[in-house]
Design a protein around this nucleic acid. Sequence first.
DNA 1: CTGCCATCGTATGAAACCGTACAGAGAGGC
DNA 2: GCCTCTCTGTACGGTTTCATACGATGGCAG
Lengths: 222, 222
Amino acid sequence: MTPEDFALVEPHLQPVALPKSKILIEPNTPIEYVYFPESGVASVVALNSDKRTVEIGIVGWEGVVGPSVILGVDRTPHQSFFQMDGAGYRIAATHLTQALDASRSLHSLLLRYIHVLTVQTAATAMSNGDSVLSKRLARWLLMCHDRVDGDELALTHEFLSLMLAVRRPGVTEAIHLLEGSGIIKARRANITILDRERLEETAGDSYGVPEAEYERLIPELR
Amino acid sequence: MTPEDFALVEPHLQPVALPKSKILIEPNTPIEYVYFPESGVASVVALNSDKRTVEIGIVGWEGVVGPSVILGVDRTPHQSFFQMDGAGYRIAATHLTQALDASRSLHSLLLRYIHVLTVQTAATAMSNGDSVLSKRLARWLLMCHDRVDGDELALTHEFLSLMLAVRRPGVTEAIHLLEGSGIIKARRANITILDRERLEETAGDSYGVPEAEYERLIPELR
DNA sequence: CTGCCATCGTATGAAACCGTACAGAGAGGC
DNA sequence: GCCTCTCTGTACGGTTTCATACGATGGCAG
């Protein structure tokens, strides 16, 4: 991001704490603020009428929560919430819209990020079509690992089952599979990545395409 | 679309035939033309390294093939091809980009369509997570029905199995299920929708969310 | 009419996942 | 130390899909 573009938004940025399970975007409700996480991880989910959630995207320091605003849309059917403690900045949707109108380069940068998000969602669709759970789990752990410091992820099986839209014991089994190969170490409410390379092998090509698009298109978000 | 915006792109529109299985966008290749179908249906698919395809979007007269250009991105990892004969217009990516730079309202309209596409892809991800094939098939048939004239769809089981990323006999079984309830009539390489209402019931809430977003955000594309 | 090829129907055993239930193991409060 | 709550491990039968194979059928070409 150029210094000029940053100067455009900087006065409107408000630092915010982003604790676990804080809801950032409510579905079908006008979006007040757009969030730029500095740390932690957010999830974007679609909700069934049965209140069952399916994760469709994951966002960390590299991205933006509330991207619909960048597209000029005031609300979205999806929900966004924080799943791992962090902090960051927020900006009022109206201020961001003004900044986008003022700077073509800023708009362009954020639109390229939208493209990356689209590719990520498509990869999620592909991954969900593939029924092997351990593969989907591997992909999810990798995406999470990309967005945190260190190799430890504070996650329960219950939470993973919600994200992957499978039953909880299924997650337990899949974790044992990865743990049995020495790829991860599982402790109570905690998973440690031991061998990232083999985790990527396990995920196969369900992981990597969106990440490559990000590298190609986003020089440095800030 | 306002007459002024239409005047901006009109000189650059070229009519094109869009026969079945014509590839419109090659993956990871600079996009030369963006397509506006008038009839027929296009599919956007992601490709595995195994060459297996998973459909992530479907586009007809209501939309645009090659939306990445609208986001200022020159290529995409996805492939787009025509799956049912039709016709439409194309415009060189460079000309469209110029028109977008010239008209904020045109850009805004197309960005809102991008949002709808994103929601559609998310719905695909959700639908794929749900394992019941007949439900996924119902959703797919509905989306196709929305984009063609009449109630007949020229489709083979083989093709559907590629789109839904399942095996071909699975499609046969799912079709029999719907046919047994009198919802559709299946003939060789042809499916006729008999009872759209019950088809929507079968699809459940995997169908409808993107369609509602379209209604809400796109007054009339042309 | 006959042959051919795309398309569809069906079978079979294996694998993955589902919903549910319940017992065992950490971790913190008191 | 002990209680309680959350989290994890395991079990069960049932359902759905998987991969693969092969036979039947429809429709067009010659």
